[in-house]
Nucleic acid binder design. Structure first.
Length: 274
DNA sequence: CGGGCGGCCTGGAGGC
DNA sequence: TGCCTCCAGGCCGCCC
């Protein structure tokens, strides 16, 4: 599900509801995720804690408490973090829930269990093993063609895998890698060793443009993405290539193709992308 | 050592 | 209707 835009949309949707709020009860219903939830530490550092602010790093949502601990949530492929006003009946695949001081619930559900939930002291977050190797944030001014060109020196990987490698740039997953490459008119299989400086500039701009537009549209809901209040995103209708195999390119009319690269589907236009 | 691949899970779609 | 296979937005570790 969630690439950078979806996590950012989730974060923004939760800010007005969570910042300054106190958690009165933390309950772990089903601790089994890819990394098991450490009940003791999650409960002891969030229950009775007051949320200072919500941040994001890469595809991780960071819920920072005034006790200087941070609750880290990763949605994996199918995770959802939603506020609910209704009853307290457990929902399907509900792993964890927080009761807020106003009585509402913040629920974490994740059918496929690729998500992650853990706590870490806020000042130790950068050196945590989930974060230490991460590359730059694409929307914070550091992503330039020169940076990408520099990072690609001595490599031969296809540009799509390179874009999705979070040691270089974070937040770009399968959908937005395909979309950015289409916008920059680069074939997903092109080797990073054979991309000109001008084309790197174009690609850096395309990544930022695509991510920003997706945020503006509330993210991409293919199936199950919802923000913290249950809203779907609308960027799906703006996708130019992702999941459009067999349909015409809206820019040149050629038929969009699907290929498989490192086990993932890549969608591209054989007319525009060389 | 860069990079490709399998594995982790459930559920929905489509073929027969 | 039911059973099977394939596929899905991420990430890590293993292996060549």
């Amino acid at each position: 599900m969630p690439e950078l835009p979806e996590v950012e949309v989730l974060r923004r949707s939760l800010v007005p509801h969570l910042e300054g709020i106190t958690i009165t009860l933390t309950e772990v219903l089903f601790p089994v995720l890819r990394e098991p939830i450490d009940l003791r530490s999650v409960i002891s550092h969030t229950q009775d804690g007051r949320i200072r602010r919500l941040r994001r790093r890469a595809k991780y949502l960071l819920i920072e408490f005034e006790n200087n601990w941070t609750l880290v949530v990763h949605l994996g492929m199918s995770g959802q973090l939603t506020l609910s006003e209704g009853g307290r009946e457990p929902e399907p695949h509900e792993h964890l829930r927080f009761t807020l001081s106003d009585g509402r619930l913040l629920r974490f559900r994740d059918p496929r269990r690729f998500g992650m939930v853990f706590v870490v002291p806020t000042d130790e977050l950068p050196s945590d093993r989930h974060f230490a190797h991460l590359g730059i944030e694409p929307l914070e001014g550091e992503l330039t063609g020169a940076y990408l060109a520099r990072e690609s020196v001595g490599r031969s990987a296809p540009v799509k895998s390179f874009l999705m490698d979070n040691r270089r740039v974070v937040g770009v997953g399968n959908i937005y890698a395909c979309e950015a490459l289409h916008l920059a008119r680069i074939h997903p299989k092109r080797s990073v060793g054979r991309i000109s400086a001008q084309r790197w500039d174009l690609l850096a701009g395309a990544v930022r443009t695509v991510l920003q537009r997706a945020i503006d549209e509330g993210g991409t809901t293919l199936k199950d993405f919802r923000d913290g209040t249950g809203q779907s995103g609308y960027f799906r209708v703006s996708l130019e290539v992702y999941d459009r195999a067999g349909k015409p390119c809206r820019r040149c009319g050629r038929v969009i193709r699907r290929i498989v690269q490192t086990g993932r589907s890549s969608f591209y236009c054989p007319g525009c992308q060389r």
